[in-house]
Design a protein around this nucleic acid. Structure first.
Length: 557
RNA sequence: GCUCCCGUAGUUUAAUGGAUAGAACAUCGGCUUGCGGAGCCGACGAUGCAGGUUCGAUUCCUGCCGGGAGCACCA
């Protein structure tokens, strides 16, 4: 049984003996470590209903808890205005340590999602356009969420949805026909797109619309040739990025595939769900919810918009994988549209709509101003990675590392992913170049560094894989108060779909380990066996944490 | 104008309604026998404003101020 659950049961028993009813017993970790490992405020909450002094009630509860201390719970006491604090015992710490040593890569897993099928859709870059920081955010967050729910036992399928048809593609193809940009490289395509987007506004709308039509219909050989080649160049390029970032998709969906079915479904429901307006087919969201607004699903030219394609996508997904939940990860700029689409889908297929969940993340902002792939004023993910990698290589010059380039790339990606995963996902990130090139303090490299240190210590002994520890230390360390909490952190990150809980925890653990490392002599010290076991436990948990964040844990750096 | 999101040290941020609001960067002051200084220890420093609910509010509610995003044929 988990210790938190055990403590709750003990409290529950005492409350029953006192004939006090409490709906939920809230257990928390006091911020102040001297206040113990767990704390509950039940007495203060119950005192209200019972019209008693909270502190006196807490004392009464503790009296009924007397004798319930066992090998795990060392001490229970009343503190402050009526908190009941639980201090765990050395044997609990030792047993947990042994559990970690035994579980290794599995430590922290839970079974709360066993049997559940979950599809996670993320990244969603558009062929012919740049893969920019926004896509890096979606990829980083989506990969981490996928791993966190897989750690909870779910069957996870990763999906990517790419916009390979639509006006943006037509703009690029038009510009390529004009000899702008280049069909051979992703940068060339990006330039073509930027030029086409500019010219669309400057009088070339009709020509570009004609190309858009031709791409949908696939009826023009020379356009098809440009389109096909550009599409492949983009997609191949994206694949190299996914490899670098550590993502393997199970499914790739394309707008060219969802467009037709989406259109047909929308058209079938005209009159009931959708209606015609100014030649377009729209959904009047405000009729269903006053927070929603009207959106065009099929435009007056007969083309499906993002909204109709999204309807097609929902069915395409459920055709290939009978999911219980489908999570889509996007920037929060589409929050309003997504709600409209979901509401419209709910009118068509309530069951399907209820399985769909949207997780939106904030925008990456540059101090210099807004990014726009339309004007070509973008920071691509690749350029960003290269820049950070260069800074890592400078630090690495004096180190003896096998493949410095690759190692620096791993560290650079860690730095960037950490920056994305360190805060609540819905908040905007202000990208600070100077900060992303600094690897001190809260950072991906800081976590990796703690991991390499632990690894290095263990490699110096012949006890890389410690099985069990028997003797406890005289004094418990701060580390022991951290390591047993990892499974709780994973559970919380999963419930809220918020990876930053893992990031924060891992950073605290790394900090505690670095302090421990500075203070204790680990090898050949007074508590060698126990300290080595603690080092091994930290190594295991940091590795598992980094895994959940989608960050590599190098042995050297 | 309407809708949604955000406002915490100089800066970037954390905190299931709980105790003295936790970190990091920057600034200032320290750390050689001990295993990786991308590290450690210390100092300074914060909840936008005004009400309300509560034993208790950064957290919930209302209003205001400030920032961002969205509001019909782009995604």
């Amino acid at each position: 049984m988990q210790i938190a659950e055990k403590i709750k049961n003990v409290i529950d028993d005492a409350l029953k003996e006192l004939d006090i009813t409490a709906r939920d017993i809230l257990l928390e970790h006091p911020t102040e470590l001297s206040h113990g490992d767990y704390s509950t405020s039940v007495a203060m909450i119950a005192a209200k209903g019972a019209k008693q002094d909270p502190r006196k009630l807490a004392v009464q509860i503790v009296e009924h808890l007397a004798g319930k201390e066992d090998e795990d719970i060392e001490r229970i006491e009343v503190a402050g205005p009526g908190f009941i604090n639980f201090h765990l015992s050395k044997s609990f710490y030792k047993n947990t340590l042994n559990e970690i040593l035994k579980e290794k890569d599995n430590f922290g897993k839970n079974e709360s999602l066993v049997g559940k099928k979950i599809m996670v859709e993320y990244t969603d870059p558009n062929p012919f356009k740049a893969f920019h920081i926004g896509h890096l955010m979606s990829n980083t967050i989506g990969e981490s969420i996928s791993r966190i729910i897989a750690f909870s036992g779910a069957e996870v399928k990763r999906a990517n949805y790419q916009g390979d048809v639509g006006p943006h593609v037509a703009m690029a193809v038009w510009a390529l026909q004009e000899g702008r940009g280049s069909l051979d490289t992703p940068e060339g395509l990006g330039k073509a797109y930027a030029h086409g987007a500019k010219m669309y506004k400057e009088g070339k709308q009709e020509e570009i619309d004609a190309i858009n039509r031709a791409i949908y219909k696939q009826d023009d050989k020379s356009i098809n040739a440009i389109y096909e080649k550009g599409r492949i160049v983009s997609l191949d390029y994206f694949e190299t990025l996914y490899k670098m970032l550590g993502t393997t998709f199970d499914y790739s969906f394309f707008e060219s595939e969802t467009a037709q079915n989406g259109s047909e479904i929308v058209k079938r429901h005209v009159g009931k769900v959708f209606e015609e307006s100014d030649g377009a087919i729209v959904f009047k969201g405000e009729k269903y919810n006053n927070k929603l607004h009207t959106r065009v699903f099929i435009n007056s030219q007969g083309f499906p918009t993002y909204e109709a394609k999204e309807i097609g996508l929902a069915y395409a997904k459920s055709d290939v994988f009978d999911f219980d939940t489908s999570i889509t990860i996007t920037g929060n700029e589409i929050d309003a549209y997504f709600e409209v689409v979901k509401t419209a889908l709910g009118e068509i297929d309530k069951t399907l709509a209820q399985k769909i969940r949207h997780v939106s993340h904030g925008m990456m902002k540059l101090p210099s101003g807004k990014m726009s792939s339309r004007t070509g004023d973008v920071v691509t993910a690749e350029a960003l990675i290269n820049e950070v990698q260069k800074a890592v290589l400078e630090i690495e010059t004096e180190r003896e590392i096998k493949d410095k380039e690759k190692n620096a790339e791993i560290i650079a990606i860690a730095a960037l992913k950490y920056m994305i995963l360190r805060q609540a996902t819905h908040k905007d990130i202000i990208y600070d170049l100077k900060r992303s090139l600094s690897f001190e303090g809260d950072s991906g490299p800081y976590l990796q560094y703690a991991y390499t240190r632990a690894t290095s210590v263990l490699e110096k002994t012949n006890k890389k894989d410690i099985q069990e520890v028997y003797e406890n230390r005289k004094e418990t360390t701060l580390l022991e108060k951290h390591i047993y909490r990892f499974p709780e952190v994973v559970a919380e990150a999963r419930e809220r779909l918020e990876p930053h809980h893992v990031t924060t925890y891992a950073t605290e653990l790394a900090g505690a380990f670095n302090s421990f490392y500075a203070r204790e002599k680990i090898i050949a010290g007074e508590n060698e066996a126990y300290n080595l076991a603690l080092t091994r436990a930290v190594q295991i948990i940091l590795k598992n944490s980094l895994h959940l964040l989608g960050i590599n844990a190098p042995k050297r750096m």
